[in-house]
């Protein structure tokens, strides 16, 4: 079950959610801060609303979301940095 803070890629398709936090991720190493900044610059900020619109060919990687009216594709690793709370459907 998705908990209150679900990473993006675990949200179901079509779900609407509010971003709670952008957390660090060991996968990016020294680049992690840059990746966080880029995510924020593109509008992935705590409080922002998004909707999951689709997934890639295999499983939940990459994941496509709409945020501020723009659609983005994020890979698993980036998606794991974005924690969100799902809105009741």
């Amino acid at each position: 079950m998705p908990s209150a803070h679900t990473p993006l890629h675990q949200l179901p398709k079509g779900a609407k959610a509010t971003i709670v936090d952008i957390v660090s991720h060991a996968v990016f190493g020294d680049m992690d801060e840059q990746v966080t900044l880029r995510l924020k610059e593109l509008g992935f900020l705590p409080g922002a609303m998004l909707q999951v619109i689709g997934f890639g060919l295999f499983g939940s990687d990459p994941v496509a979301v709409r945020i501020n009216g723009t659609k983005f594709g994020l890979r698993r690793a980036e998606a794991e940095k974005v924690l969100a709370t799902i809105h009741p459907m």
Binding site: G29, M31, L39, K71, F72, G73, R75, A77, E78
Partner: peptide, 10 residues
């Protein structure tokens, strides 16, 4: 490790 994909879908 790679720079994020973060592909805009226009």
């Amino acid at each position: 490790n790679s720079f994020p994909l973060l592909l805009e879908l226009p």
